[in-house]
Design a protein around this nucleic acid. Structure first.
Lengths: 342, 342
DNA sequence: CTGTTAGCGCATTCAA
DNA sequence: TTGAATGCGCTAACAG
């Protein structure tokens, strides 16, 4: 186990008594005479030689790296997505570079200019907020980019998103089936991509069911976190008395449940709860939370595959995939279910 | 916004009518005459030039990338750590490359050989299981490495770990103070680094308190997940009737609570629960879970800073940091607290 | 202050 | 099959 400093093609070549070209060939499995192969192998072993990734990248014009940028780390949804993307791209021989942009759009722009420095071969981006400038940057970028979530106007890129309008409809319809009358909504910030989509979905679902849109029944948390959810839920319950609440994600749902319990109300008897994303905590919560599964893992997998496809074939036509959500019913929204809970 | 293919120093130099060296200087803010600066700036702008990261890396012998490898993605603890590490290294101008090794030690070895290809300047590694071979590889590696968790025997590396023996003691002592008599333990696999440490801590804590070590009171989940925790908790309650359970992490604690509730027992009245890691779910759970905060965020920050320090000064003496845990008391272990809960 | 030049480590063309 | 030579894009040493 030689604690050598570093070794290069040249060193190996000298030791093996061959040219650097031969060493390169052997290392890449290209045809060479058995003797040369043997001598190079041995020399490389003795020197602990491993080809340098940077030099190879410069030569090949590719880095074997894929960048992933999500706005909201900390949200369990993105964790699962990251994991899945990592799995897929790793299997394809890529490394995953995490670019944790904050919610600040400027971060994403910095990222895109950075990308053009060529530290990665492609990007998967899930923007929380979309500005015109981001759109412009996206359009101008030279590298393959896949967007998770809705696209900025006028941008033609590979894209995968959940049909969250339909997702909310699933939740609302389910609650109405359960006989709920006053269905409130705890959303995140409406100036975000998911926040806007979910508000839209909520309003449309009510309309389709012939229900009135009651402004008192809606509150927006300042972000998609548990802490913000506590405040929002308290505000909601101060101004109205719903018998069901749709929450824009599971964290907000857990927060709502906490506040409801604290006020001595029972779930689902007094208030039914439906969350979104179907993260682990929906299952862990007590009672378990009915949640709209927006198929985050699948979206992640599709995004990764779209990017890999474009990396293979830059000329491929733009593909835009919409993933259908499904409702996972648990105890928080069904009276019978709460007692019979597994 | 030129949709050009790519542009290099040479292109910019031609357009500006200067040498490539001048362009390089201007781009790096080195001294140059105002006229040259101006012309280069403009040419670069018009061409949308950005320096190539790969070429720069080859020349500089560094990549500005730091690799992070954690065995158990999916565990919320690591998510927080990753986030923190990302924050710190990004601020220092590094990118974070995620190398999601599975629990398979071979993955980590592959990673280390990969590292020697020089795709990153350093590594932060949090191994779940430690083998002799991993130890050997670590010792042989040429790059700066910081280990989070206990070190393999005979390895001298920068290292930061939690004092989990002390952590368990905090939990046990707290439960005894609360008047608990039969303190059980739900651990993860004991062939893992944290599993072994926590078992050790549990046994020592009992001994120091003069309590007997009852084999019936210990079960090992097959891994540190919620699902495995359900089985383990059921097995434990089948074989004994504790009035308190220390769980090796918060996921196991939530699982235990679920099983306990299902059996009609009350928390904390019948059984007190203490988790470990103090992740968000400890706070979200109903009732909120008393948890040993092993300071994962701080460990992550320290690890990142240790690595940055060594990157700056490779000759610095090896530093090994032990972080003191602290107990966060919540409703799951204190009878009065359960009612007065905030 | 500016231009010329020599590599960084590798893959690859072209001759031999 | 093998070796010598070229260049990926950039920085830094050296001249001018």
């Amino acid at each position: 186990m030689p604690q050598t400093k570093k070794s290069t093609l040249v060193l190996v070549a000298e030791r093996a008594g061959v040219s650097i070209a031969s060493v390169s060939r052997v290392m890449n499995g290209l045809p060479a005479s058995p003797q040369v192969v043997e001598r190079v192998r041995q020399a490389a072993d003795e020197l602990g030689y491993v080809p340098d990734a940077t030099a190879r990248s410069l030569k090949a014009g590719k880095t074997d790296q894929i960048a992933l940028a999500v706005a909201d780390v900390g949200n369990p949804v993105y964790v699962g997505m990251m994991h899945e993307i990592s799995r897929v791209v790793t299997k394809a021989g890529y490394r995953l570079v995490i670019s944790s942009t904050g919610s600040d759009p400027q971060d994403q722009i910095d990222l895109l200019t950075g990308l053009n420095r060529g530290f990665a071969d492609g990007l998967i981006l899930s923007p929380l907020r979309v500005t015109d400038e981001l759109g412009a940057q996206l359009r101008a970028s030279r590298l393959p980019i896949v967007i998770i979530g809705s696209l900025p106007a006028g941008v033609e890129l590979d894209n995968v998103r959940a049909d969250s309008v339909r997702g909310i409809a699933l939740a609302v319809d389910h609650l109405i089936e359960q006989g709920r009358q006053r269905i409130a909504f705890i959303n995140g910030p409406v100036d975000t991509v998911p926040g806007a989509a979910r508000l839209n979905g909520y309003l449309r679902a009510l309309t389709e069911q012939g229900r009135p849109q009651n402004a008192d029944a809606q509150v927006n948390a300042s972000d998609f976190t548990y802490r913000a959810g506590l405040k929002a839920a308290a505000a909601l319950l101060d101004q109205t008395t719903p018998d069901a609440i749709v929450c824009a994600n599971d964290l907000l749902a857990v927060a709502a449940m906490k506040v409801i319990s604290k006020r001595g109300l029972r779930i689902p008897d007094d208030i039914a709860i439906v969350g979104m994303d179907d993260t682990d905590i929906a299952d862990l919560a007590q009672p378990a939370i009915t949640s709209v599964d927006l198929r985050s893992i699948k979206r992640a997998r599709v995004a990764a595959k779209l990017l890999l496809r474009r990396l293979e074939n830059p000329q491929a036509p733009v593909e835009q995939v919409v993933i259908e959500p499904k409702l996972v019913v648990r105890a928080s929204s069904v009276k019978e279910c709460a007692e019979a809970e597994l």
